[in-house]
């Protein structure tokens, strides 16, 4: 029985992959709580696509992909903030413009390479088994930094998300807090790049948090549960991909979706089936 769990771990790339998957599962799920509660799913998706040019530049220059992605992500996070602040362009329109343009730019740049197809698929859907020790270290540091900020500014993020008017009356710098949240999301997207890729990161940001939302009444518990769902999805998904021989990013996302569906159907208070049963009674 234990063989099933330990067998894949004799490979170094599986160990690193598992560590990366768990890390990404935690960080995405925690920051994803804000994305779900503030209805920013589209923004998370946009952010993921928008970092593509940064990755492409790093690729072309043979630099570190994470560094390129991080630079692009932070530029985009601050760009969205500037474009929407006090202008007549609505936020979703601004995001739509940036998002499509960045994706086009990124693909255009990568398409000049000979190994175009493989490279593009790695970026779009992740290449978890190609995680190096150096990548893992950098992701670990960035992920820990995101979590530390979330914990330290827990009550400020909570207030700005829940009641911006009170935040303004208490003279908290809501603009700076929002910008910081965007940067945290950007960093999270970058960390997830190798695990699930640009195309699927939204699922990891949104699905575990949405699942947790169905069974909690407080943000703190929601974050813990969401992280738990994220880790379970990452681990189960990765093993599944190993044994069934499918791509790991999609396997992780599909596991998260399966958990969501289970909770959506059976959650005691908000689940579909318990509600139907109560109505029948």
């Amino acid at each position: 029985m234990f063989d099933v769990i330990t067998a894949p771990l004799i490979y170094g790339f599986m160990q690193r992959g598992l560590a990366a998957a768990i890390l990404v599962g935690i960080v995405c799920s925690v920051i994803g709580c804000y994305i779900v509660l503030r209805g920013m799913a589209f923004l998370g998706d946009a952010m993921a696509h928008a970092i593509l040019p940064g990755v492409a530049v790093a690729y072309l220059l043979r630099g570190n992909l994470l560094v390129g992605a991080l630079a692009a992500a932070i530029l985009v996070a601050l760009g969205i903030g500037t474009l929407t602040r006090g202008s007549s362009i609505k936020e979703d329109t601004a995001i739509g413009i940036l998002f499509a343009a960045s994706l086009a730019l990124g693909v255009a740049m990568i398409s000049s390479l000979q190994s175009y197809a493989t490279d593009l698929s790695h970026i779009l859907f992740g290449n978890i088994l190609g995680v190096s020790n150096q990548d893992l270290l950098l992701c670990g540091i960035l992920g820990a930094a995101v979590l530390v900020v979330v914990v330290m500014l827990y009550k400020e993020f909570l207030l700005v998300a829940f009641d911006p008017v009170l935040a303004a009356t208490l003279r908290l710098p809501a603009g700076a807090i929002n910008a910081l949240l965007l940067v945290l999301i950007a960093v999270t997207v970058v960390i997830s790049l190798q695990t699930v890729g640009v195309g699927l990161v939204t699922a990891l940001l949104v699905t575990p948090a949405a699942t947790a939302r169905l069974i909690t009444r407080r943000l703190g518990t929601m974050m813990l549960l969401s992280a738990a769902f994220g880790v379970i999805s990452a681990v189960v998904g990765l093993y599944f991909s190993y044994y069934v021989n499918i791509a790991s990013g999609p396997a992780i996302v599909l596991t998260a979706t399966a958990i969501f569906l289970l909770v959506f159907l059976f959650a005691p208070a908000k689940g579909v089936l318990p509600r139907m049963l109560r109505r029948l009674r």
Partner: peptide
Amino acid sequence: PQRCEVDWEFPVLVRDVVLMGRYR
């Protein structure tokens, strides 16, 4: 405000909301 424009579905307890008044 006349109608607090907050997200009533937000996962916070009444206690948490009142405590927000003391963040300063």
